[in-house]
């Protein structure tokens, strides 16, 4: 569900900070989830929704940086905004290298935080859409035979049936049969439509 409402995960061991950040983001209409630890975050994280994570660097259990690494290994789309009690340059550098959206020092400027959240959410939404497209393409290609996938690749490459027949060392007629099957499975009527279907699965996706 790429169109699902975004959600902000607030991870801080200090309930007051958690609550205050939640209060702020809800003031501008965001939905948020408070988590006291990394474990709670991973229990409640909904990877299907565009989201961002406001993460305290210092946490009991999993540290902020460990959480960030874990998110990356899961290919999560969530943007990470670090907040910290006091500037910690080496940690900030590492966090940014790992792709954190920003690194804010407490007490932070509310507008800066909200701007970063907005940036993170849109990035997350885009990443989600990209992921969905890739997943959809993968699903469709699963319905094709090995030979059909080979023919499709050569069609996209702009080769004629004859050239494909030479390449694959099969007859031109057989190539034509494969193409017909491909178009039928993609539900398209022309080669141009077939190419568009293969490259951008959301367009004309019937399924």
């Amino acid at each position: 569900m790429p169109d699902a409402a975004p959600v902000i995960y607030i991870v801080d061991d200090d309930p007051a900070v958690r609550d205050a950040v939640g209060f702020l983001v809800s003031s501008v209409g965001y939905e948020y989830v408070s988590c006291a630890s990394g474990k709670e975050l991973f229990d409640r994280l909904d990877a299907a929704r565009p989201c961002c994570i406001v993460l305290d660097v210092r946490l009991p259990g999993l540290s902020g940086l460990e959480i960030q690494r874990e998110l990356q290994s899961r290919n999560a789309t969530a943007g990470v905004i670090f907040i910290t009690g006091h500037g910690d340059i080496p940690k900030a550098v590492r966090a940014m290298r790992l792709g954190a959206v920003d690194f804010l020092e407490k007490p932070f400027d509310d507008q800066v935080l909200l701007d970063r959240i907005s940036d993170a959410l849109s990035a997350s939404g885009e990443a989600l859409a990209r992921n969905a497209k890739q997943r959809s393409l993968a699903r469709r290609l699963e319905g094709l035979t090995e030979r059909e996938r080979e023919v499709l690749a050569l069609v996209i490459a702009g080769k004629t049936s004859k050239a494909i027949a030479v390449d694959l060392d099969i007859s031109a007629k057989t190539v034509d049969n494969h193409r017909a099957n491909l178009m039928a499975k993609a539900g398209v009527n022309s080669v141009a439509q077939l190419i568009a279907w293969a490259q951008n699965p959301s367009d004309g996706d019937t399924g």
Binding site: D14, A16, V17, D19, A20, V21, F23, L24, S26, S27, V28, R58, I83, G85, H86, K106, P107, F108, D110, Q111
Partner: peptide, 25 residues
């Protein structure tokens, strides 16, 4: 002193954030 600063920063951050939230509301 550093951990003291961290400790102090927590309520300060909370206060500031609550206040900004109030302003927005």
């Amino acid at each position: 002193a550093s951990s003291l600063a961290h400790e102090i920063n927590q309520p300060l951050a909370a206060i500031l954030t609550y206040a900004r939230g109030c302003e927005r509301r």
